[in-house]
């Protein structure tokens, strides 16, 4: 099932997210960071901008979760595109 077809002229650029272990390590870490299990239960203060500190931490982790996922879609995934672009002459929008 290896889709890294050697006959493709762009084979060196073929990428699949599942093959990037660090990507999944990063995703697991930001997901865990966003769940405040490691903070003292029931604590609210200090408030940061009026918001409980733990929510600010979770918000930051969530933004990182979105950013890494978005990045992985655009940069860690390139299986069929070279072939499709070649076939379509790069006309896909």
């Amino acid at each position: 099932m290896d889709r890294r077809r050697s006959e493709s002229p762009s084979s060196t650029a073929l990428r699949e997210p599942i093959r990037s272990p660090w990507l999944w390590v990063s995703l697991v870490l930001v997901v865990l960071a966003g769940v405040p299990f490691y903070l003292p239960t029931g604590t609210v203060e200090p408030l940061i901008g009026g918001v409980p500190y733990w929510l600010v931490v979770s918000l930051g982790a969530t933004l990182a979760f979105s950013a890494i996922t978005c990045w992985a879609c655009l940069r860690a995934w390139n299986l069929a595109e070279p072939e499709e672009e070649a076939a379509a002459g790069g006309s896909d929008s």
Binding site: C70, C73, W77, N78, L79
Partner: peptide, 18 residues
């Protein structure tokens, strides 16, 4: 239509929950 279309759509979808 293409992989490019799919991954660009999903990249934006990663932000839509916010």
């Amino acid at each position: 239509r293409s992989e490019r279309t799919l991954k660009r759509s999903l990249a934006i979808m990663a932000w839509m929950p916010l």
